[in-house]
Design a binder for these strands. Structure first.
Lengths: 239, 239
DNA sequence: AAAGTCGTTAACAATTTTATAATATTATAC
DNA sequence: GTATAATATTATAAAATTGTTAACGACTTT
């Protein structure tokens, strides 16, 4: 490496939860985006039902705010589709509507929405409802590691990338989960061995490499970096 | 056992969750009690804030519905007191109010309420909000699990697929019900053993497999996925 | 008593996962 | 650049895990 003075600028990663807003009125999208971003959330937008589904799959948001009246699939339809998919059974959903009739309120909740809010609504109130939902939901410890578009679900034993399931074998999964548990940190080879294989198990030198290779192959993303002579670390370089 | 003719009358046990309602208007108490009881919940009542606190401690309800405007401690105060106690940090709280101003809405939620509802509210809507709260909080506790065209009734011990009854033996049913109680989640073999067979029962290695096989055979749907080296999970892939 | 159900086990087949060995490639120090 | 060590890659063999079938005893029902 060249000599010189290096200044390291750490860019604050938006650590907040990801929220997807779907509404066909641009004004509402903008107001909500502004307020939720100010609150520390990372916001994605969609202007109709189909787009909402695409974004949901791609971004894997923690919460989706759905307008009921939208072109190309209503909020109700989107909610129903999402809830029937395994990856979205835990995703929070808030329905937003101008209709204030009782039947659709009940229907929305029965369809699997977590909250149903009538428009017009003040941003402050909506934000506090959003906060309340998150507060209640994430009281327990999380079994899902989320890193960008990658999700490692220890409960379902599945890795998801942009909404697509990737099936790893047990050892592969455990190895990836270990590395991803502390992104950026280098795990020494003997650390990996003792954590994934067990302290007393003796396996050959190349065993770790082969598993790393399989993970890289299956994920098809650059996310495991080799630190020569030391070990491996998880690092999202692409994707 | 004595000989004779036995007629078994199964009385529906109030298996539902316990709900405490606190409101100073007797009419509201009664309407809500009637509707929530009809829905299968066990209801307790309190007519002011102090009584609400006493009942909460005594009955340990799963959900408390608090009117904001009450004599002898407002709903806000009760909420604050409860949330500061260790035993009630996870108890669900719905605030009910005639005030429809934004500030108290936000304040109520920030105080730790899980929902904030303006009066007047139709019992139907309130019930569906209550159900929605429980659905997310106590998932897996339901007596009837509905997943697509499949219905698993734990109370009646019946599995129905597209309207047809499927008869499973006891162990088969319990195994399926366990897996289906948390769709997507992987149950480890030893978890299955301790939940279905009992922690101390020792059975052979292939016993679980054989039961899984029988379930798959009888249901004839792809709904149980094997996670090799780990366990099984319920997942509707087809049907 | 006969027929049927249920839960379990044993035996074996089929499959998948894991480890290793052999070889190629890459990074790093000199 | 070259030598060297470390890692990547590939194929293959070994090991582990699960699927499947049949059979047995304990019970229940007819």
């Amino acid at each position: 490496m060249e000599r010189g003075i290096y200044i390291c600028i750490t860019v604050m990663e938006p650590k907040g939860k990801k929220i997807l807003i779907a509404d066909d009125e641009p004004d509402i999208l903008e107001i909500l985006e502004y307020n939720l971003t100010a609150e520390g959330y990372t916001v994605f937008k969609a202007k109709d039902g189909d787009e909402a589904l695409i974004q949901a799959k791609q971004q894997q948001p923690d919460l989706i705010i759905l307008d009921v009246m939208m072109p190309r699939k209503t909020g109700m339809e989107v909610c129903q589709i999402l809830r029937s998919q395994p990856g979205f059974s835990n995703t929070l959903i808030i329905m937003l509507t101008a209709l204030s009739d009782e039947t659709s309120h009940v229907k929305g909740l029965e369809m699997g929405a977590d909250d149903y809010v009538n428009k017009p609504i003040s941003p402050k109130v909506l934000i506090s409802r959003v906060n309340a939902l998150f507060r209640r939901t994430f009281r327990g410890d999380e079994t899902v590691i989320k890193l960008g578009d990658l999700q490692i679900d220890k409960e379902q034993f599945i890795v998801r990338y942009k909404g697509d399931d990737i099936i790893l074998a047990k050892k592969e999964f455990e190895l990836l989960a270990l590395l991803a548990s502390k992104p950026g940190r280098v795990f020494l080879r003997h650390e990996i061995l003792s954590q994934v294989w067990g302290a007393d198990v003796i396996v050959g030198d190349r065993t770790i490499d082969v598993h790393i290779r399989k993970i890289r192959q299956k994920l098809n993303i650059d996310c495991i970096t080799t630190v020569k002579g030391v070990g491996y670390k998880f690092e999202m370089t692409a994707g």
